[in-house]
Design a protein around this nucleic acid. Sequence first.
DNA 1: TAAACATATCAATATATGTTGATATGTTTA
DNA 2: TAAACATATCAACATATATTGATATGTTTA
Lengths: 117, 117
Amino acid sequence: MQTIDEQIEVYTKFFHGLSNPTRYRIILSLLDGPKNVGELTEDIGCSQSLISMQLQCLRWCNYVKALRDGKNVYYSISDERVLALVQLGQSIADGNTDKICTCEILKNEKYVENKEG
Amino acid sequence: MQTIDEQIEVYTKFFHGLSNPTRYRIILSLLDGPKNVGELTEDIGCSQSLISMQLQCLRWCNYVKALRDGKNVYYSISDERVLALVQLGQSIADGNTDKICTCEILKNEKYVENKEG
DNA sequence: TAAACATATCAATATATGTTGATATGTTTA
DNA sequence: TAAACATATCAACATATATTGATATGTTTA
């Protein structure tokens, strides 16, 4: 059993998985099919260590699973529902692209609405 | 038109909306029906300023909309698909509750898997 | 128009997160 | 078993985020 607080923590941590560009790119890339760390590193263009760390995070939270094949470790999406989740999020976000890009509130920068409520 | 980087930024920022306990609680609460800032503050149990700031964030990103009624401002969910998104996320996360709770990788703490791949 | 009320913003701060380069670990093969 | 290769972890650091109390803004009503 869990308290409400614990439940909320689980869900927010889960969604946090999708809130970082590196992790998100990894997921998108793996939705195309399994890849090893080297391939992902090249695909995404950042340090190998970062890819590896983020993969551990995604794996821990069950977004992806790992399968070693000799020297390589191949990662793949572990739950098909992730595709639906990503697609649904994207379709909602697509309706509000410009604003989302400039959501600076939590950076303590000023929130200025031109007009309207 | 957007570059891939810009698209990724939009989507990760959008999902970031669901990655914080205060914002998540606000959304859950509003899925039950519209509420004003005072009601949400009482519901969630944190400072009024925090509720207000997070509401601006959620509003900016189109999770919620605002409607002033005299001294009060009532907030409500602005896109019905948010319910589906939340439910889908929760159902995926529910299968992995214990691990998600302890995902400490990005805190630079050690990731130790008991066994298995 | 002053008081009361509701909400929004500001300034400051503590904490969490993302990132990298260096290094360690694990695996294959000469 | 040493070299080469692939991946994982570490240590350090810069940046982003969450949060609060104080204050400003906007709205109603006496």
